[in-house]
Nucleic acid binder design. Structure first.
Lengths: 222, 222
DNA sequence: GTTTGCACGTGGTCGA
DNA sequence: TCGACCACGTGCAAAC
């Protein structure tokens, strides 16, 4: 019914335009403008309709209501994303880092090295923050009498001096391996702020030197 | 159909009237209509502006662009929520059962205490050694700025002074809780040689004092 | 020049 | 009747 009246008005106006055909020269441009505006309007209305279809179904078909509820829904979704991301980070923080590689490495060769430091980046698709990265630092030390406490303390005190990394989680184990030589393994999950420079190899080498120095000192003491 | 003809006649009459006399009918009702429509328009534009302010900042100030980008952003946020929720569920499913209690405890009350120390004996039927016992020491510290590194270092240095306990494994996490107050949790598995005297409550109280002292010092420093 | 976009006033419909 | 809402055509800018 409404469409009918609209089209009726349209034809009426067109008739009016044709009535003044002799005095109004820019009829074609005006007509083009008119239909262009009509096209714009219907496109905008279509966008309104599709947007309303995405909103929660109890929404009024009001244009203003569509806008305001879109705004509210958007902020709500943002809050949900933030909360979920935070909770996700909490969960990931206390998730034990994968320790399978250490076992394989220990079972295989490379045991001639008393200290091994590996640094692997954790790719997490849930929190793809571009300004920070997450690394897993694994330190394995085979020594006759280097207690895990000293090792962890040394590593942590070293980490405190590096200002753009922060500790997310830490996992340390010690176990006997073969005849009276125990193996200490520490896995640290680190969050690296990407703002400053970050030399991965240099950091790894520094950790290696710290641990090797600890092993030397301890062996000299005993 | 009848209505159509009626409206047609009416509009025709109105147009005739307007053509004839233009100054006699700008009555107050038309003026009210005008300013009301103006009010409506500016309110709608305001809604447009606020909605655009919530969109990603590279958005065109076009009305249609605002609508379409709002739609895209909304679907994107929805997808993010779905993916985060799925991942969250996966993470919660594979969460170790030991950490669930701490999670609930953190979510529930008992947050009035900034430091909590619990010591539980691990009964393991696989190694029923009678001359040594295994304990799990859990330390939770809620503080605005007590980094986990210091906490672990303090606990380990304290442990080094106790001569009849040795560290088996260590697990430390830190995560944000609420507004800018992070929670540090450290779980230590200790082997206690039963030969000498072993006062469980005293040990726990000593750990609590160490951690509380650390928190005090850190709060005083900052 | 043309196209795009927007605010304006206006007439019309639908519900209190 | 009054108020809210909407579509229409048009004048007026700025941008391709």
């Amino acid at each position: 019914m409404l469409k009918r009246s609209i089209s009726f008005l349209r034809s009426l106006n067109l008739m009016r335009l044709r009535e003044g055909i002799q005095a109004t020269r820019p009829t074609s441009s005006q007509l083009h403008h008119m239909i262009s505006e009509r096209k714009r309007r219907e496109k905008l209305n279509e966008s309104f309709h599709t947007l309303k279809s995405l909103l929660p179904p109890g929404t009024k078909k009001d244009k203003a209501s569509v806008l305001t509820t879109a705004r509210e829904y958007l902020t709500s979704l943002r809050a949900q994303v933030a909360e979920l991301s935070k909770r996700n980070q909490q969960l990931e923080a206390r998730l034990p880092p994968a320790a399978k590689e250490a076992y394989n490495e220990e079972a295989a060769g490379s045991s001639n090295e008393r200290v091994s430091v590996t640094l692997t980046q954790v790719v997490s698709e849930s929190t793809p923050d571009q300004d920070q990265q997450i690394f897993d630092l694994q330190v394995v030390l085979r020594s006759v009498e280097c207690c895990t406490e000293d090792m962890v303390i040394r590593i942590l005190e070293f980490l405190k001096q590096v200002n753009n990394v922060s500790l997310m989680s830490l996992e340390a184990n010690t176990w006997m391996s073969g005849s009276d030589s125990n193996v200490n393994r520490v896995i640290l999950r680190l969050r690296v702020d990407q703002g400053t420079e970050w030399d991965e190899a240099a950091f790894q080498e520094a950790v290696r030197r710290v641990v090797a120095d600890l092993a030397l000192n301890n062996c000299r003491n005993q």
